[in-house]
């Protein structure tokens, strides 16, 4: 091939280029160490903390398909709720061991995700939003009607968890719940971080960037989408299972449209397609709701609406995307 005068710019090692993109940063260590702070400085907020961790895991699962693959779902609560009911029902049936119960919740959601993924790969854009929304509404009404099993709109009562690892009782202050949720969140994060930095993760970004080109480089795109949709469903199910176990209750709103919409809002706020966006988004959303709703419960959506518009207009890549851009600009100057 014609090797004409390619300017020999400081010979870069291509592996190092890619390695630099995926290496663990000190900011990440600080972030995860900071998740332990609530135990010391805010023990009264551990219940809220566990809710945030659970929601963050849910947002993380959605980020896989929305942020990485570029497919918008408005029905992700279907998997969250399915996991929650699975975990709740297993406990109610007499098996209160948390970890196996949680894995069962993840597996159940994964199976549901796998089955529905065959519909998902056939549609895109607006139709996809509507179909995912439809599937979630459908599941909501099934759970509502199946009163004898799910408790309908009274919620699933009588969930009782055994102590975690045989030692840690689930207490009223949420100490065990928070520790449990944070560990599961962290382990899930590690798995998903590896996933998005793998060749598979790169192919997902390829689908997001240009679904027309993917077949032309020989990529079996439908398989990839089915796989990530199934994995995403599994992690949403884990989040739902965690909520059922730590609150020992499943409300019908685990499957609600509102839950699907809110998690999407969190992802947009934090910044989709960068894992931490979902985590930050969930934190901001949950803390803001807690604080603002204390002041004036009806008024909270006003502030949320304002925040959402401001972020979309001024930080189209979310809060984290905006931060990354600032950092890059600052580095270029320095």
């Amino acid at each position: 091939m014609s090797v004409t005068t390619a300017p020999a710019l400081a010979a870069v090692d291509p592996r190092e280029v890619l390695r630099a993109q995926v290496k663990w940063r000190w900011l990440e260590t600080i972030f995860w160490l900071a998740t332990l702070l609530p135990f010391l400085v805010a023990p009264t907020y551990l219940v809220l903390g566990s809710q945030i961790a659970i929601t963050a895991l849910f947002a993380l699962s959605l980020d896989l398909i929305v942020g990485y693959c570029g497919l918008v779902s408005l029905g992700h609560a279907a998997f969250f709720g399915f996991g929650a009911y699975t975990a709740g029902l297993i406990s109610k049936a007499g098996w209160g061991e948390p970890i196996t119960g949680l894995l069962a919740a993840g597996c159940a959601a994964m199976v549901l995700g796998y089955l529905t993924s065959f519909i998902i790969v056939r549609i895109t854009h607006f139709a996809l939003i509507m179909v995912t929304l439809g599937m979630c509404l459908l599941l909501y009404e099934v759970a509502n009607k199946a009163h004898s099993i799910t408790g309908g709109d009274d919620g699933l009562q009588g969930v009782h968890m055994w102590p975690l690892l045989g030692h840690f009782q689930f207490d009223l202050y949420g100490t065990t719940a928070y520790g449990y949720a944070i560990v599961i969140l962290f382990l899930s994060f590690l798995v998903l971080r590896r996933l998005v930095n793998s060749p598979f993760g790169l192919s997902l970004r390829g689908i997001r960037e240009n679904p027309r080109r993917m077949p032309a480089i020989g990529s079996p795109m439908s398989n990839r989408i089915r796989t990530i949709y199934t994995i995403s469903a599994a992690f949403a199910g884990l989040a739902g299972g965690l909520l059922a176990q730590t609150t020992e209750f499943v409300a019908l709103d685990a499957l609600s449209f509102q839950r699907s919409a809110e998690v999407l809002v969190m992802l947009v706020l934090g910044g989709a397609g960068r894992l931490y966006g979902g985590l930050i988004g969930a934190m901001i959303f949950m803390i803001a709701r807690d604080q603002l709703a204390d002041m004036n419960p009806q008024y909270w959506y006003f502030w949320l609406g304002l925040l959402l518009i401001a972020v979309i207009v001024f930080l189209p890549n979310g809060i984290l995307g905006g931060c990354a851009e600032l950092l890059a600009r600052w580095r270029r100057k320095a």
């Binding site: 592996r15 890619l18 995926v22 590896r194 790169l202 192919s203 020989g218 398989n223």
Partner: peptide, 25 residues
Amino acid sequence: LEAVTLAVCERRGEAGTWWRSLPSY
């Protein structure tokens, strides 16, 4: 670099692997 690496990985049948990080290829 990412785009062409993706195309190479697809050809080599490695782009479905999610448990190994990209720089190890």
